[in-house]
Design a protein around this nucleic acid. Structure first.
Lengths: 229, 229
DNA sequence: TTAAGTCCAATCATCCTACAACTTTTTAAA
DNA sequence: TTTAAAAAGTTGTAGGATGATTGGACTTAA
């Protein structure tokens, strides 16, 4: 028996096309879409059909419309938005525990699968951390630090893990910043980064896991202290 | 200066109302919604407005419409649907690795936070596994086995972790089944479940992690063997 | 009685026009 | 130049009309 070929509704066809235009980067985040009247002509559909498609993407978080003004691209990943919303419903501690789980697994996999390019990327990130730390630029340090972790996660060569990690880290960023700023001085211990990098280079799985546990516990303690105040 | 009170569009208001009706269980999965004409009257909006709201929820995966037939509730968790779609884009191995990460973290947290009720639930699940195994009922065993793992994850008392784990496990279910059915006989080693339970009861964190690693590696080996065939 | 085919009412899909509400740009007056 | 009013452009909402599909009621023949 053949599968029933479900006829895709016009609206879904338009939705798919717009999604692809966004994912492909043809419409970047912040770009303004053409007006409804023009999109109607381009997709050759009625206003209702077009509006239903756009509304679906607005609700998914990819687009944002403002009456009288226009429609702009808000995000390029529906999954990212969904995860973002879920994180907002959860406590910071819960989210951090999930992030730890992912990071620990990533460290383990990275120690097994890392290639030369991965190691180079991590080395570069550490250099950037050091530079920012010496300048005392907290913002830049944070950016470099997050970059280091994401580079490590990328070295796990598991794209799903990577996607989850990045989309969870993003909404946490302001909380992370808060914790970092809490100390009057912010002391960057570059050894921990180097040790983790070395463990991954040497493919020493257990050591990599241990280092991750170590700095996550540090972070957890800091948060507890802040929340108690 | 006061914040500009963003006027919520009529469509979003209707979307929110429908979402709440679904989340609250007033409309259960499988239920058929009233026809457009009636919903128009109930929400007191025009046909266009109502359709845009419904379309948004259809795209989110909560509803499903069929021309000539009607609209039915398909899911009660937009996040679950989003995660489901992400899993489908990923390989089984990638997904399993993420699931392992969550399960390991859950075991660790469960060992720290479990209460009497958690331990009771896990004990019950093991009994069900044993019963199903003795009857040779693979379907029922699988159900009980998954229930055991989800009970353990619940004992972590981290709702975000729990949500992620369950929504990732769901689409994996058919794959898990396949692996289990692969062996001509299916040999249930109940010791591993009991040992894990004991570790969690004794709050022996490291032992709990080790047991999780152990049975996940078993599972991973099985999959590799199947995929190589 | 049963089975197949036909018809019909209900329902969603798409299109159309009109007007309201809001924003941005242009114009005109002070 | 500055300010205010007008105009143009854009999305939001309403209501109606027609097409396409579905599911069930009805009919008819075996």
């Amino acid at each position: 028996m053949l599968e029933k070929t479900e006829r895709l509704s016009l609206v879904e066809q338009v939705v798919t096309q717009i999604e692809q235009l966004i994912e492909s980067g043809h419409w970047q985040i912040g770009d303004r879409l053409p007006a409804e009247m023009q999109l109607m002509k381009e997709f050759d559909v009625s206003r209702n059909t077009l509006r239903e498609a756009i509304r679906a993407l607005v609700h998914a978080g990819l687009l944002e419309t403002k009456q009288g003004s226009g429609t702009v691209v808000k995000s390029s990943s529906a999954f990212g938005v969904a995860l973002h919303r879920q994180v907002e419903k959860s406590s910071i501690m819960e989210t951090l525990e999930v992030r730890l789980a992912l990071e620990r697994e990533a460290a383990q996999l990275a120690a097994m699968r890392r290639n030369e390019q991965d190691l180079e990327g991590m080395t570069e990130s550490i250099e950037l951390c050091k530079l920012a730390s010496e300048k005392g630029d907290v913002q830049e340090f944070l950016k470099a630090d997050i970059n280091f972790h994401e580079t490590m996660v990328k070295a796990s060569h598991n794209r799903m893990l990577q996607g989850l990690y990045e989309h969870i880290t993003e909404p946490l960023q302001s909380s992370i910043e808060e914790v970092m700023m809490a100390d009057d001085y912010f002391n960057y211990n570059e050894e921990i980064h180097y040790e983790l990098l070395e463990a991954i280079r040497d493919q020493n799985v257990q050591a990599a896991i241990d280092y991750v546990n170590h700095y996550i516990n540090d972070f957890r303690e800091k948060i507890k202290r802040i929340q108690e105040e």
